[in-house]
Design a protein around this nucleic acid. Structure first.
Lengths: 223, 223
DNA sequence: GTCTATATCTAGATAGAC
DNA sequence: GTCTATCTAGATATAGAC
C-alpha cells in the first residue's frame, strides 16, 4: 500500500522568518488541509483514512486531531474552505453586461473552463457523493458556487426585455443546467469517450436557442 | 452502532413451495442483492460493510461470498442489474411521435417523474459518487439509461425539419441536460429548499425555447 | 505543539461444522 | 449451500514522551 508517497506539492509558504527554533505554527494547518484535499478528492469521505491524510500531509495523526475535532470536522472545514476560497464563482460578483450573444458565449466558455478543471471535477463529484451524508455542504455549494451565477444571469435577462425571455429565472436554469449537465456526463461520468460532442456545438446551439425569442421579437417589430 | 436493525422490507417472495426441507436456492441471491441495494444506496461503496449487508439481507456473510467473489463483485453486479433491469430507459425504445409541444411536455414530465423517485435519486448519486473508482459503471449508465433518450429525441428532431433545429444532437443535450441538472440541484443536492422552482416553470420555458426556431420558420413562411 | 506508541473496534475475507 | 466462529489488517481516536 504505502507506495513511496511521492512528494506532494505541499504548501511551503515562507519558512517561518527569523527564529529557526520555534516550529511553524499555522503551516501545519495548511499542510493538513492540503493533504486532506488530496486524499478526500481521490478516495471520498468514507474511503479516506486519517492515517493516509497524516502521511500525505507530512504530519502525525495527533497533529491533525489537535487542529480538528475529528474526521467529520476536518472534512467539513476543508470543503467549506474550498467553496469559499477557491471555487466561489466570480462571474456572479458584478452585473453582467455586453452584447447578448457575446456575453452568453463568454459566460459559457468561462463556465466550461472552470468546471472542466480536473480538480474541480473531483470536487464536484465529492460534493455530490456526500450530499446525503452532508446535505448542508451540498446546499452551501448551491449558495456559494451556483446561486450568484443564476441570479446574475436572470437579472441580465430581465434588464434586456428585447430578448423576450418570458421567464428569466427558468432560462437561467436552462442555460447553466445544459452546461453543467454536459460537464457531468462528459467529464465526471466519463461520457466523452462514448458520446463525444464538442463544447462549441453545445454552446452554439445553446446561444441560438436562448436568443431565438429575440429574433421572433425583431421579426414582429419589423411589421 | 448496531442500532436494532429495524425490519427491512426484505423480499419475502413465495416461501418455497411443496418441499419444506430443501432450502431456497435462488432466493438467497435476491435477498443479498436487495439488502446490498439498501445499504449501498444509503452508505455508498466504501461506507458499506459486508457485515451490514449480510444483516440487512438476512443471510450470513459467507453466503454472500459464495454468490459473489468479493465486495467489488457484489457492487458491480448490483449496479449493472439495477441499470439494465430497473432503470433502463423506456421512452427510448420506440421512435417518438406526436405533436411537438405535446410530445416534449410528456417526455419532460416522464423524465422528471422517473428521476424524481427517491430510490433513483440515491442510485444516481451513487453512480456519480463512484464514477472515479468505477468509471465503467458510469459509462454503462450513460449507455443504458441515457443514450437512447438522447438518440431518439435527436431522431425526432431530424424527422421534423419544420422545427428548424440546426443541431438535433446538441438540442437533445440541452433538453435532457436542463432537466437532469434540475433534478441534480433540486433533489440530489437539496437545492429545492433554498432555490425553489416548480417543474412547470422549467418545462414551459424549455419547450418554448426549444420550439422557438419553429416559430421563426412559420413567420418566415407566412410571407 | 508535535511526535511515537497504543487502545479499541470493525473491516474484508476465510475455515470448518452441518 | 448455509451458518458460526475466526484470522488479519487497518480504522478512529487517545495517552503520554519531548
Amino acid at each position: 500500500m504505502l507506495e513511496q508517497m511521492s512528494d506532494q506539492p505541499l504548501v511551503q509558504h515562507e519558512p517561518s522568518p527569523e527564529t529557526t527554533s520555534s516550529p511553524p505554527r499555522k503551516l501545519k494547518c495548511e499542510q493538513i488541509l492540503q493533504g486532506a484535499l488530496t486524499v478526500f478528492l481521490e478516495h471520498g469521505y468514507a474511503g479516506t483514512s486519517m492515517d493516509r491524510v497524516a502521511a500525505v500531509a507530512g504530519v502525525s495523526k495527533q497533529t491533525i486531531y489537535s487542529h480538528f475535532q475529528d474526521k467529520q470536522g476536518l472534512f467539513t472545514a476543508l470543503i467549506e474552505r474550498m467553496m469559499i476560497d477557491r471555487f466561489r464563482v466570480e462571474f456572479g460578483s458584478e452585473p453582467l453586461q455586453g452584447e447578448p450573444a457575446m456575453l452568453l458565449r463568454r459566460l459559457a466558455e468561462t463556465f466550461l473552463t472552470k468546471m472542466g478543471d480536473a480538480e474541480f471535477i473531483a470536487f464536484f463529484r465529492l460534493v455530490i457523493a456526500e450530499s446525503a451524508r452532508f446535505p448542508e455542504l451540498a446546499q452551501l455549494y448551491t449558495r456559494t458556487v451556483m446561486q450568484y451565477g443564476y441570479v446574475n444571469l436572470s437579472q441580465y435577462f430581465e434588464s434586456h426585455p428585447e430578448l423576450h425571455i418570458a421567464d428569466p429565472e427558468a432560462m437561467s436554469r436552462i442555460f447553466f443546467g445544459s452546461l453543467g449537465a454536459f460537464i457531468l456526463v462528459q467529464e465526471v461520468m466519463h461520457g466523452k469517450q462514448i458520446m463525444a460532442m464538442s463544447e462549441e456545438r453545445l454552446i452554439d446551439s445553446l446561444i441560438a436557442t436562448v436568443l431565438s425569442q429575440a429574433t421572433v421579437g425583431q421579426v414582429g417589430k419589423s411589421h
